[in-house]
Each structure stands twice: as structure tokens, then as C-alpha cells.
């Protein structure tokens, strides 16, 4: 195995679980998350030598986010995926069936696409407003308004959940 392949493989081994988690936070579906991450990692491989050392993860994350935007904007062109396979689709599907997703996560998934992406990037991954804007290709003002609305919706959902349990 070449040094190129070795370093890439090491990166995948170390960071893939986190990247799948990021993708899952964006799309709410393990199959799609896997598909997005795979697509992003393949592109990373092709660009590996051009990516600044240390910025590999940011590079993949950008591909992930934009690929997901493209998928949601261009349903006709979304890449093949097996997310809607029936019951015998494999461990990932089984995991999803038994997974107890938290109320907050469900609320996150219920947010409009761009609000969800802003919340994930800005408030979970701790990107700055400018970085989030660049990643999503929207204005900084738009980031702020999505952020504010998204967090307000999450807060409301959590408070109503607390109230219903009380």
C-alpha cells in the first residue's frame, strides 16, 4: 500500500464514525448518512494530495454538507442509495429500528433543512458564523436568522416535552 493510501486509510479509520454522525445529524437516516460519507470520502481520496494537512476533516465536512444540500435540492440527481430498502436491509436498518432517538434529535430533524444545517454546524460543530455561511453558501445574516429560529424551535419543543412529562 502506498503512503498516500496508508495515510488516507488511517484518516478514515479515525474519523469516519464522527463523519457518519455529522451526516446523520444532517439527514436523520443512517443509510443516507453512510452514503453521504462514502461519497465524501471517495472524493477526499481523489483530492488527498491537494488537501492541506490538518484540514482533511473540514474538507470532507464541506463535501458532506454540500452533497446533502444537492440531494435535497436535486432529488432527480441524488445518487443511488438503499435508504428505502425493505426490512432485510442489514445492520444499519436494524439499528435504526431499535434506536431510541431523543426528543431533541427528533426536534432537530423536524427543523427546516437550512435551520437544521445551521444548528448542526454552528452550535454542535462550533463553526463561526462566517464559517457556517461559507460552508452553506448563504449570507452571514441568513445564518444568524436561521440560527435564532432553529434554536427557538428546539427550545420550544424541549419545553413542551418537559411540560407534557410534568
Amino acid at each position: 500500500m502506498s503512503a498516500h493510501d496508508e495515510t488516507f486509510t488511517a484518516f478514515v479509520a479515525a474519523r469516519r464514525p464522527h463523519l457518519v454522525r455529522v451526516a446523520y445529524a444532517l439527514c436523520g437516516d443512517w443509510h443516507r448518512a453512510d452514503d453521504l460519507v462514502q461519497t465524501a470520502l471517495v472524493k477526499l481520496y481523489a483530492s488527498w494530495r491537494r488537501v492541506t494537512p490538518g484540514s482533511e476533516e473540514a474538507y470532507v465536512r464541506t463535501i458532506l454538507v454540500r452533497a446533502h444540500i444537492d440531494q435535497t435540492r436535486r432529488p432527480w440527481w441524488k445518487r443511488e442509495r438503499s435508504g428505502d430498502l425493505p426490512e432485510r436491509a442489514g445492520p444499519a436498518a436494524q439499528t435504526e429500528q431499535v434506536e431510541d432517538r431523543s426528543e431533541l434529535f427528533e426536534a432537530l430533524q423536524a427543523l427546516p433543512e437550512m435551520q437544521r444545517k445551521v444548528v448542526v454546524l454552528r452550535h454542535w460543530l462550533q463553526l463561526s458564523v462566517a464559517e457556517t455561511a461559507r460552508e452553506l453558501r448563504i449570507g452571514e445574516g441568513t445564518v444568524k436568522s436561521h440560527s435564532s429560529r432553529g434554536l427557538a424551535a428546539l427550545r420550544t419543543r424541549m419545553e413542551s416535552g418537559d411540560a407534557s412529562r410534568a
Partner: peptide
Amino acid sequence: LERAIPQPPPAG
């Protein structure tokens, strides 16, 4: 959010 976002299944 860190607490709310699930860990991925091990398969990959």
C-alpha cells in the same frame, strides 16, 4: 446536541 445526536452503528 452532543448528548442528543446518536453514535453511529459500528458497521462501515
